[in-house]
Every structure is written in C-alpha cells, then in structure tokens.
Nucleic acid binder design. Sequence first.
RNA 1: GCUGGAGUGGCGGAAUUGGUAUACGCGAUGGACUUAAAAUCCAUUGGAGGCAACUCUGUGUGGGUUCGAGUCCCACCUUCAGCACCA
Length: 1223
Amino acid sequence: MDLAYNHQDIEPKWQKKWEDSHVFKADNNSQKEKKYVLDMFPYPSGAGLHVGHPEGYTATDIYCRYLRMKGYEVIHPMGWDAFGLPAENYAIQIGVHPQKSIADNIVNFTKQIKSLGFSYDWDREINTSDPDYYKWSQWFFLLLYKNDLAYKKKAPVNWCESCKTVLANEQVVDGKCERCKNEVIQKDLEQWFFKVTEYADELLDGLDKLEWSHALKTMQKNWIGKSEGAEIKFQITNFKSQINNKFQIPNIKKIYFATGNDAKLKRVKKILAKIAPDLKVEKVPDYVEVEEDGKDAFENSFKKVIPYKGKYDIPVISMDTAVFFDGEDINPLEPKRSALKNIDESKLSQEEICQKMLDFYKNIAQKNNGQKEFYYEDYWTILYPDGIHQQVKNKRDYVLTREELSKVDIYFPMRSLYYSQVTGKSADQTNEEDYFKEFENVSRALKTLLGLQKINPPTSEEALGIKVFTTRPDTLYGATYMVLAPEHKLVQDSKNQIENFTEVEKYIDITKKKSDLERTDLNKNKTGVELKGLKAINPVNQKELPIYISDYVLASYGTGAIMCVPAHDQRDFEFAQKFNLPIIDVVESERKTKVLIIHGLGSNSNENWFQWLKKELEKNNYEVIVPDMPDSEKPVLKIWLQELEKIVFDFTEEDIIVSHSLGSSAAMNLIQKMNLKINKLFLVAPATEFLFQDKGVRDNIESASTEDNKKFTKEFLSAKIDYKKIESNIHKIYAYFSDDDPYISLNQKKDLAKVLEADYKIFKNKGHFSDTCLELPEIIPDILEKIKAREANGTMVNSEEFDGLDSEKAQIKITKKAKGQLTTQYKIRDWLVSRQRYWGTPIPIVYCQKCGTVPVSEEDLPVLLPEDVKDFRPTGQPPLASSKEFNANVKCPKCGTDAIREHDTMDGFVDNSWYYYRYLDPKNEKEFCAKENIKKYMPIDTYVGGAEHAVGHLIYSRFFTKVLRDNGYLPVDRSLGEGGKFDEPFLKLINQGLILGTDGQKMSKSLGNVINPDEIIQEYGADSFRMYEMFMGPLEDSKPWNIDGIKGLRRFLDKNWKYFSSINYGDDFSDQINSALHKAIKKVTDDIQNFRFNTAISSLMIYFKELSSLDNPNKVLVNSYLIMLSTLAPHICEEIWQKLENSGFICQQEWPKYDEKLIKEDKITLPIQINGKLRATIEVEIDVPENDLKDKILELENVQKFINNEKIKKFIYVKGKIVNIVL
RNA sequence: GCUGGAGUGGCGGAAUUGGUAUACGCGAUGGACUUAAAAUCCAUUGGAGGCAACUCUGUGUGGGUUCGAGUCCCACCUUCAGCACCA
C-alpha cells in the first residue's frame, strides 16, 4: 500500500468505477422499499459552483449512501434549472446566445459536481430548457387553463415610457427608471396568472402534516395570510352610475336577442348602444315563444340547444333570474307568488325578504344534502354573423341541477335585466332612470357575455355600494369614514358625481408614480383625498360617512375598500388625525385607566391642584393615585423609587403619570429604571438635572431653599437620565412651564422639551405651579386627548343594543345586523407567470381573430422557443415578437385561420414546480411521467435546499401537485391507507444554512469573499472537503468558512490512511472496544437519520482513536467503521476497502447493526453533588440500590468535608445519573 | 412595527432533552523529532486564586420554578432572517 494518501489519484479512479458499474442507478422495477431523496436542482450560472451548493448535496449524498446500505431502493437525481434571466442578461452583455452559454455552464457544473463523488443517478438528468422537458411545462399550462386556473388579466406593472419596458421593482429608483432616469408609471398590462388563491386554504391546512421546520411553516403561513372577518356592504347615497367604459368586442359583430318581450329587448339595445356602439342587436326573426307549461317544455328546449353548441361551437349562455323550488316561485321580488306567501310582506323590507328567501333556499339545499341546486332559467343563445339561434324561455317551474348547468358554457345571474332590484318591478314596468341605477350589474353581465368569459355569479346582495372586508366587525358603530384604494372601480364609475374629480385624478396620478418603496417608506404620513359628493351609509345606524381615497388602502387585498374606525385601528387613527375626522370609541377596556400623581419637594398629596385633579378625573372614570412620598422635605431618590415601584408594577401602555417639580425627576428615573412603558407623562414645572446647568437658577435654588433642601435636591437630581429611552417608552410627553417660574429658565424649558420631543405649554403667572395654583383646568383636555388607537378587545360602548357586550362576542351579532357575511381573506395573490423575456418556456396560446384566446392543442406541443432571436434587449415588444420562425404560419387550432402567437414566456418557477416528477420518467414522450412511476417513487421523502425558496418554489410546487391530484394524475399512496392520495410533494424538508465568507458575511463577488471549491478539492481532496462541510456545524445553521477547519479533517483522513496502511486483520479484540464500536454505530446511525453529520463525525473520530491503538484489529472492528466512514469520505474508504482485500464496492455493503446490550455499561462514574454542587464522583455498578450506595458515599472524604456534621435533609439518588445531598 | 430563529471558551460548535457545562475539531502555549523549518507525535488550554490537593466563579441580562437549570416559566437586551399600511 502506498505510504502517501494521494487523493488526486484515488478520487477520479473511484468516480469512474462507480459510473462504469452503474452502482447508483435507481431501478423503476425494484421490489425494494423506495426512498426519494432530492436536492433542489441548481441554476447553472456562469460563476460555477460555489461552496454553498455542495453543502446540501453532500448531506443528501451521505443520507442516500446510508439508505442504500440499509437496503432501500434510493432515487437520487440531479438536473438543471436552466431557464432564467441571468443567461439572457449575459446574452445582452456579452452577445453569447443563452443556449450556448447554458450548455457551457452545464458542462462545467457537471464536472464540478462529479468531482465531489456524489451518488447521483445521472441517467435521469434533466434540463428545463430542453424542448423535451418544456413541452411538458406547456402541457401543465394547458392543464391549468382547462381547469380555469390560468387566466389573463390586466395587472399594474412598473413601466418606463422611454425604455418601453416593464421594470422590476429593484430597477425603479426614487420613482424613476434606473437607466434613463425617466419617470416610471404604473401601467396595466395583460398578464397571465395562475390561480394559486383557489388553493389557499388547502395550502395552509396541508402544512400541518409536513415535517418542515417551524420557521418555514410560519413563513408560508404568513405568506398565505389567512384572516377571518366579515364582509359588510355600505350603500352609497345619491349615486348615479355613469356609462364611461367602452368595451372592445373582438369577434362578435351582431347579436340576436331571442325574446318575445320588447321591453327587455329595448333595454338590452340601449345598454349595448352605449358600451358597444358598433354592435348590431336584433330580434331573432323567426322567434317562437315557448309555452310556459312546466318542466317538460323546458327540458325539451334545453336539449334542443345542446346540439347546436357542439355543431357550431356557439357559446351557450344561461341566466338566472330567480330561485325556484318544486314549481313554487320564491322570487323575493314577487313575494305574493312565492313560497314566502304566508309571510306578511308588507311589514318587511325588501332586504329582509331576501334574507328570508335565502334562508329558505339554504334549508332546501340542506335537505337535499346540498346535491341539488334550484334555478329558474331563462335561456339565450347568441349568434355569430349570420349564424343560427335557438332559444328557450320562461320555464318558471323548472329545476335545473348542477349537472345540467355544467353543460352550459357561461352562467351568470341576470335578474336585474328582468327585474329592477331598486323598484322590484319587471322590465316592462320600470322606467329608464331606475333601470340605469342598476347599470353596474347589467353592463357587467353583458360585458361578460360579449367578452365570452366566465365569471362568478354575483350574489343577490351585490347591488350598489361599497363592500368592505374587516376583521373587526364589532367596531362597526365606530366607523366614521371610508377609504377606497385609488384604483377602486367606483372612483371611475362615479366620475360625474365627484365634485372634486380633478383633485382626485391628480392624487391617483401621484400614487401611480409612487414606487412601492415610496408607498411604504412614508407609511406614517397618510395622504388622501375626499370624494366630495358621495356619501356612504353605515348599515347599522344609517349614519352618513364621508368617502376618501388613499394609498394606504391596497386595491389588491380584500375588496379594495375599508371602513375606518379610527378609535380602534392605528392606521385609521393617523388618517383621521390628519383629516380631522371624528373618533368614536366603541370598545372600552375592562380596566380603568390609571393616573399616578407624584408631588414635589416638601409637598404632599393634599396640596395644590392634586386633589382637584383627582376629583375631575374620577368623574371621567379614571383611577387616580396620589401617594404621599416619604420624607418629602429631605427626599431620597432611592426610597422614593422603592415606593413608586410598588404602585406602578401593573401599569400598562394605557396609563398616565402626572409629575410636579422634583416629582418629575422621580418619574423619569422610575420609567428608566423599570423600563416602564406608559401612555402619557406630564411634567409640570419639572425639576431635572437641567436645573443645575444654569448658574442663575442655581442661585435661585440656593436662596429659596433651606440647607437640607439644597443637599437633598442636589443628590436627588444628580442621577443620570437617559432621555432617549424615556422618549421611546412613552407615547406622548407634555411639559408645562410658567413664564415666572423662579427655578426654571426659558432655555431649560426649550432644551428639555426638545430632548424629550415633548408637547410644551408656557403658562402665564403660574409661578412654580405651587401655592397659587389651586386648579389646572388646561390639563384635562390633554389627559383626555386620544393619542393612539386602542386595538385590544373589551366591552362594547356607543353601540346601541350591543353596549356592554364582550367585543369578541359582538362580532357575529353586529355582522348579522349589518347584513354582512363572515368571510375569510388571504394575503396570497395569484401567481403572475408572464415574462416579456426570451429565455423561458413559450406560453402555448394563440390569438385568433374569430375564436379569441385559443390554447395550442396538446399534439402540437412543444411550441418551440425560436433560435433566430438576436436582440434580447427590451424594446416594448417581447423578444419573441421579433422572431420570423416563431410567428410564421400560425393557425388557429379551432378554425384554422391565421392567428397570432402569445409572445410572452413563462416564469422559470413554472418549469421547476414539477421537475421532481420528470426525474421519475425523464424520457417519456407520451406523458409528463408515467403513473406507475409516480406510484413507485412519490412523494419525496427528503428534500434539501436553501431557505430562499420558502414561499416561491415550495408553494408553487405544492399547488401543482394539488392540481394534479384534482385531475386524477396522482395514484393512490400506500402510506395514506386505502384510497388515500398523496397531495404534498415534499414530506420532509431541510433548509441548509448559508456558508458565509471568512469574514462572517454573506459570500458575494463585490465583497471578494467567495470561496471556489475547485481549488480546495484540488489541494485537500473531495473527501476532506465533504467532511469539513459536514463538520462545520448543524446543517441548518449559517456558519463562516474557515480554511483551517478543513486541515483538521484532512489530518484525520491522513491518520486513517496511515493506520490502515500499517495494519492487518487479526485477533485484537476486547469487550471494551467492541462496546465502543456499538456505541459509535448507534450514534452514527441516529445522527445520519437526523442529518446531524457534525456529531456523527465526532463520534467516528472518538472511535478511531481507540481503534488505532490496536496493531492487528479484528475484521469487524475495522470494516464496520469503514462502512460508516464511507458515507462521508467515500473515495478513501473504497480504496482502503480494496487494499484490505475485501471484495465488492464498500458503498454496496450492508450497514452495521448495533446491539443495545453491548452499549450498556455496567459500571459508571456517578457524580455526587452536595446542595447542587459537584463535590465527588464514585465508581459504581450501574443499577446499584440506594441502600448499598448511601453509606459508601457518606464515607467519602470530600463528602464528609462538605457535610461538615450538618444534618442531611434529603438524599436524592437518580439511578445511573446522579446523587444530590441536600443539607 | 409584526412574525420566526439564535445568543455557550480565542474560533466552529457538543451536551442522551432537567442530572458531572465546554465532547469533537481549529487555534494558542510548552515539549519531542530536526542543522533548521514544515509535517508528525506528546502534554496543557473558560476565568480568578493557590506550591498543591483544591476553592470560588462561569452558558446575553435580571427575576422565578426545582434537591438540581445551558435546557422549563416571566421580563428585558443583542443579533440574524422573512414580511411590511394585508383592514
């Protein structure tokens, strides 16, 4: 055997041998139990591998090698997340095509990764930028599209007019473009989204069953951001809706309206004339009224329509007008005919009838197990130019089931087209003015109809008004105004109603220009504009509320509008202060606010204005404490503070301290010492250390005080005060001075007020606020002044019949009264997947003149990314628009006419949301992955990667997996019992920590502290490198790189090499070393299973130290050890294994087992404590009984010494652990 | 501001979950080998005191629970990460 350990020979040699023998190949047909261990695949950047990458890879590699030895079929693949911006930016900079640069980078990465000896199954390598791969990314897009989970909508983006491009948030600096310094605007652009929000609740609940770190789970929880609350609608007074939106109608030129009712026709025509003047609306010429004779007629007509749907591909539109049951009309607008006919409707408002109807309806649905829903249907068809029509009408007693409804393309309620929700009358009887009041509903329905989009049926409650979401419906009586997001639809819709619209528009413009940073940076400084001319009505007390717009309300959360309760919400409070809006308390604390009054030198509780103030405040329900301070003629600060601490120990941020003269100094010392956090501090003629900075004042004190006074005052005031701390602990400080105060100069007043940021008042002729000052009325409003919102729960006040109720209990009751609904809101947004970039997966959509947005059919996938794009620079057009190849010969998959391709590509996160499925079947041309392979290997048992993907990749992947589940692509999971489907891709997830630079900072090019692994592997070898990275500390922690550390591990391997070069298998064996071996096996096995490699290594070192004292060690002692070590340092162990003339690969050996009996020691060193301090130890049998032990211990010299003839109170003996003698 | 982590020698970090604090490694100091250096081997290494046996002290700070606390509870300080007007 060679004397020198030469890693440069050994490592490549074994890497080749492993590869040639396919030892790490995962067999899809294996009968062994599987383990899927996955690393987050890297983006192959030009910079190459960085010491952070191999940390996670080494951990999984050790774990996989262990699992294989344990007899599992381990799948452990590697691939490339190759699409992404850096390659494209590189292309812009250097001019190398991304295809080329990525291919080069992959070669380099592969070389680097392979040099570390990882046990990947390279046959499964994937590359997301490979057409064979992204074909299936496109397939996923179509899957989502089919499920209504992919949609296109306008979204605001940062747009630079001069560069003609979308900018990322980081590229916007001070509201200006980073490059050209032009102003950046918020522009609405059509973007593709994935509806992650649909699964928000499930993504949240699913977290519970995952073995992820607590930190990561809470991160996802926060990101999803569920909050429970209520949706409440505020009606708007004097609102006249304006028609100011003209819709683009791309592919419908004429509509036939099938009706016998001329009033309806007239109404529709009128609306369409305004929103789509070019569209022709006609009555179906050969229209025949269908008899109103019940179910059969409707069903027949319904059936007649369906074939047309297939034949001409006509969208069939169904409209709900009322709810029916068993032939009984329960249309609330026609109550006489309804199921509610026995209710005396004359006493009920329309809304109340609606509520009754809804309850009635829910009741029925419940009786039917929710299976059936009941709709009364009117029926429409719309026709393409010169197309065919069919129409069914007015089947008043038909019960339409959900299945039937599903045959219809578009469904939406359109009651308002027929019945006015304002007047309750039918179309024929409603005058035009009333009916335009409902324009909102009607035009929306028509817009949907003409745009051929599916929408959710609006609820019957959704008439005019502002809907808000609130988590505090209990505070509804305290709402004093409303705020809309500047982007709120109502603002534009009520343009003509708003008297100050120019001002409003200006504000909207300004907020559009604000970058996100600006919007949040200035978040204390609230801005906004009132919408003059509009008022909202509080649904519980009918009070009129002003409406504002402000950018502190986000359009993208909740309903984009809020009710504002300044008394109980800090943000609303700040806004209300600024705009002078009323603040009404509706939730009161159960505890009285406390006020402590501290008197000054030589004074007491009865003097001056204190008792007066006490009485005044008690009238206002405050609890006032005025203590007599001890020895007030000769005050000692320490003693005062002791007294005061007893009083303020339970003070909260609600409470107040009023202090006078020397008492102010005591108050500040008290606050500082106790770190007391209170609401307000009043400093009345405060005597502080400032006093002595002015000679004039010093003289004044000299002359006015007795000798005793002087001495004590000086002492009292000499304590240092940390004004900054006091200022930060108190919400507001008030300072009162008098112009003729003999002790305090004007300068001090200013200095003190400034340093404390206090509100200060200067009174006339109040002296030192002592003898002459009997009352101080000015203090009352300051004490009563509200300076922050009280957000806690409590008891209801000012809330009519709810007064006295617990605020939490009032939530549901008040919501009910407001006719609101309990709802849930999420912070998570739909996932914007469009990128106006080249290097990504093309979105498989075409736009057809006739058919609109059409998905590319599956058999035409992949839509290839063209190679003839030369210029990647953003020009306003996405790069794909400039490709000839890409845009030639595009036909509509539906009608075959010319069409235009979607030019945006997809976010790279789409590609990597499903890659772990592709590994299971990387070459499959028919499916993204064969079902049986999913069944064999999913879900992933262990997933290791960086925490930076906590909320992106990990949420999106979970989302994709849930979509697959809902579409039947996931097989039953054995571990979840019969019929159980797995729907979480990553059961256990481990985030490796960062490896920091030697300076303890994050590695970055600019800091020049990046460590290149190549050189280190070159010098010390992959085995040393792997072991060092694992030995640095817990995998999940961040820790700095230290080159000296690796030397220690190299030293350890050198010692191993040297030792195993010098020995032969022999007979050296003892119970002691055998016990050590079994201990090591147990520890290493446990540690590897729990990814605690640092301690595994340390126990191997400890064992090796013992082993290496044997000249001819027993074979088991050596081989068990080598097998364990080989997971960490595979190359050197293979080499030693071979040199010791063992057969086969060490990586294919069986993992050693341990015997619990051999680990147990019969003798231990028992520590002996006296009064909890270690005083002696004793060698004993492990389970020696107390009786045998006690005397022995008491005889020990050191024990005797410490007991020192004292009585033993207690003798505690924990078997096998410790003895503690209590004296 | 909110949420979640983390604070242990000169450094990276251990501590069987409440039972001898500082395992293992690095560094440092002393010694051996060497003409010398490197490498290697041996010894020492939390702080203070003592010739020594040994004693006191010590896990961010201050309290508490316990026979016993790095570990549990309360408050605070520092630090890292994520979110950030989410109604």
